[in-house]
């Protein structure tokens, strides 16, 4: 988006500072010289009040999701009990078996995985190659190419969806996963942008030295640049995976047959179909299933994800 170099630099170094902050403290200055404490010390009373407010907020943030899990384990009638029960009585685990037996959730998971994995794995390779070339190789007009690619971020997908749909229907790709894969697999501008930025911190002399040693460009990329970019790639990869996994608009345009739909479309359609049958536990169980994989990924890679998101903002 906005690319202010100074902000970017100061902010990314600042993040490095905060990261270091937790581990290593600056040597304390002699106390009592100035009124240092007044400015930096936090009032315990204020912090206690804030903790209470934050806890209250956390309840509001978590309640709907807890309720989703709770509803998924209720009986069909239990859903309507007043006052609402938070702990289902009895627990109906069978609903989850029904989700896998009677609905398209399983094929939805499979389709979502096919799309998300192929797009992100191959797309990451293409994006990092392009970022390497844009940052480190010589090509007349490469900055113009970069700007051209960036301009793609300015065009919202809804503006392109109708002509794209027509293109893909002409070649008979409607109701396949290809229209969800092909247009995005060739590279992700946001990823290219961040990786290019990242590579600017790598000295050019490294590449020059490798060239003089006679390494091929592919070799330089694979043995040198890719490992160097790995932290940045990992972070962008996860964010991209989550975005593709959670996408809804493109899949509902292209996928008609239930067994070909991605998970998000499957659960949205279940929402319509089973709401008339008042089978809310089933709908909620499917929703829980759609959230769980991403949640697990998030909890495992939480630190990397949070760092990369923090960087996203500061790279403005």
């Amino acid at each position: 988006m906005s690319l202010n170099q100074n902000t970017a630099r100061s902010a990314s170094s600042a993040i490095a500072d905060t990261a270091a902050d937790t581990g290593r403290r600056l040597p304390e200055q002699r106390p009592g010289m100035f009124k240092r404490k007044a400015a930096t010390q936090e009032s315990p009373a204020v912090n206690a009040v804030l903790t209470i407010i934050l806890s209250f907020g956390a309840i509001i943030m978590a309640a709907p999701l807890v309720w989703m899990v709770s509803t998924s384990l209720k009986t069909k009638e239990g859903v309507y009990s007043l006052p609402p029960e938070w702990i289902p009585d009895p627990f109906v685990w069978d609903t989850y078996a029904r989700v896998f037996d009677d609905t398209y959730v399983l094929s939805g998971i499979k389709n979502s995985l096919i799309v998300a994995l192929s797009v992100t794995v191959v797309g990451t390779l293409f994006s990092s190659l392009a970022a390497f070339a844009l940052a480190k190789l010589r090509l007349p007009g490469k900055n113009a190419i970069f700007l051209m690619l960036l301009s793609g971020m300015m065009v919202p997908f809804p503006t392109l969806m109708i002509p794209q749909f027509v293109m893909f229907s002409k070649i008979g790709w409607v109701d396949t996963l290809l229209p969800l894969i092909v247009p995005v697999i060739l590279g992700n501008v946001i990823m290219i942008f961040f990786l290019r930025q990242y590579l600017h911190n790598v000295p050019d002399s490294l590449v020059e030295a490798a060239k003089i040693d006679g390494a091929s460009y592919l070799k330089i990329f694979w043995t040198m640049m890719f490992p160097l970019m790995r932290p940045a790639i990992a972070a962008q990869f996860i964010l991209w995976f989550m975005a593709v996994w959670n996408d809804y608009l493109a899949p509902i345009i292209y996928l008609n047959s239930p067994e070909k739909q991605t998970l998000q479309v499957v659960i949205a359609n279940m929402n319509v179909q089973y709401a008339t049958q008042r089978d809310y536990p089933l709908i909620m169980a499917a929703s829980v299933i759609s959230v769980i994989p991403i949640l697990i990924v998030f909890l495992i890679f939480q630190r990397q994800i949070i760092e990369s998101i923090a960087l996203t903002g500061s790279k403005t």
Partner: peptide
């Protein structure tokens, strides 16, 4: 070097032309 750089940049550029510029014109 130019040839390799162009090859590395080709996929996103092709994508940009085929799935952005062309649909937009259409």
């Amino acid at each position: 070097e130019h040839a390799w750089a162009a090859a590395f940049m080709a996929p996103p550029v092709i994508g940009w032309i085929a799935f952005l510029l062309f649909p937009l014109g259409f």
